[in-house]
Design a protein around this nucleic acid. Structure first.
Lengths: 226, 226
DNA sequence: TAACAATTTCATAATTTAGTAATGAATAAG
DNA sequence: CTTATTCATTACTAAATTATGAAATTGTTA
């Protein structure tokens, strides 16, 4: 499968629209959930934890504006992007006036190309910030931009999962990451893998870096320490 | 399709001025959006993503100076040019004192010829800057102006896509470009091509240059390294 | 429009990475 | 001290990803 681009929750009362949008976005590697009204959207939000919500404005049960307000009231979703789907150009200006914390608007009828482009660039905007800065320690550098780990002058190339795991642990030295946290953040909470998988990856990292930066906290998880 | 000269956002509270400017610039092939105050301008900025902003200073809702400051605070628009429209010659000197990050000033009343000339040269300046400087390494030169690559004295002509891809990777040696970044920056995010397309172009480049400068980072992307 | 070049797609081979299962070692609990 | 739990390690299999060759499509130019 392609690199994970992001999770999107599509909220619209019209089945056709949900299907069109879902089809096109899945085609481009996004992970999709759908909801047909605001209530259902708010329910799914918790478990799915999307990066972006496509939110129709006009819905019978709970409309998009109300839904948006409620989402924005919960700081847990501060980093979740919201893009409105608007049917009428009238609404557009109306909504634009209200500062609801939406990040963009897409007018219906939906043009697949435009949809993908907008979503793509919206997500890229937020993702670009996290990436750039290398994690630095004496004798150890974890450089995500180059996808390299440098230790005592030696350069080590880690495969993706190993790198992500190592970078995660090193992002907060001393802090213990629970096994399920590791699974969530390295594997994503939609992928289900056994617990041993983590061990194996930890072992591979330990083999490749001769010093052992990863410490086991039995019954709990792992932590990074120098 | 016609050659795209550039996108310009025209911000002025005076409808007449907006229309005059829009008319004249469209006449010369520019793509125009308008806004009648700073607030509206900031909103439109996100979706329109102009190459240049013509910004009136005196506006009732949010004036040009404040708007300029806010735009310049967002690094996303570092490459967006800003040209002030000033009504009084007094203001001019005042503004010039403040270093707001504007790129030029045009005095009202607006003379269409002057306007077009200034915009033209402002845009050309930045475009040439990007273009002009060849990327140089020992034994390797990537010359965008002439669209060719010199390696060990041999001159190799690469077709456009191959060149753009190679130039992108070489623009930051060592840095991994994710596949979707490559798609965005070489193909543009309005064109949708499959992932294998990148591989094929990489291969072509590898074939033409006998040394292999392009390294695969599996599951992530490609990077340039000597 | 024919001829050629560039671009893209497709199928499949080659490779690398990820995941699992089995077993042994270490640790904690009773 | 024995048992149960958890982790480490190894070897193995499955899955994912890229490389490649060739064909199809699109674009350019004379």
């Amino acid at each position: 499968m392609e690199t994970k681009l992001g999770k999107i929750l599509v909220v619209d009362d019209d089945l056709d629209i949900r299907q069109i949008v879902e089809y096109n976005l899945k085609l481009h590697g996004y992970e999709i959930e759908t909801a047909e009204n605001g209530v259902e959207a708010l329910e799914k939000l918790k478990n799915f934890n999307p990066d972006l919500i496509l939110l129709d404005i006009m819905m019978p049960i709970k409309d998009g504006i109300q839904t948006c307000i409620e989402i924005r009231a919960n700081s847990e979703y501060d980093n979740t992007l919201i893009i409105f789907l608007t049917a009428l150009s009238d609404e557009y200006s109306e909504i634009r006036g209200l500062d609801l914390g939406a990040d963009d608007y897409i007018a219906k009828p939906i043009k697949p190309k435009l949809l993908v482009t907008r979503i793509h660039s919206a997500l890229r905007r937020v993702q670009q910030n996290d990436d750039a800065k290398p994690i630095l320690f004496p004798n150890l550098e974890i450089n995500r931009e180059q996808f390299l780990v440098k230790h005592n002058g030696k350069t080590i190339v880690l495969p993706r999962k190993e790198f992500e795991l190592f970078a995660l642990l090193a992002s907060k030295p001393g802090r213990v990451f629970l096994r399920h946290e590791i699974l969530d953040r390295v594997w994503g909470n939609e992928v289900i893998v056994g617990d041993r998988t983590i061990d194996v990856h930890v072992r591979k990292i330990r083999q490749k870096l001769d010093a052992d930066f990863i410490h086991t906290v039995k019954g709990v998880g792992y932590k990074f320490e120098m």
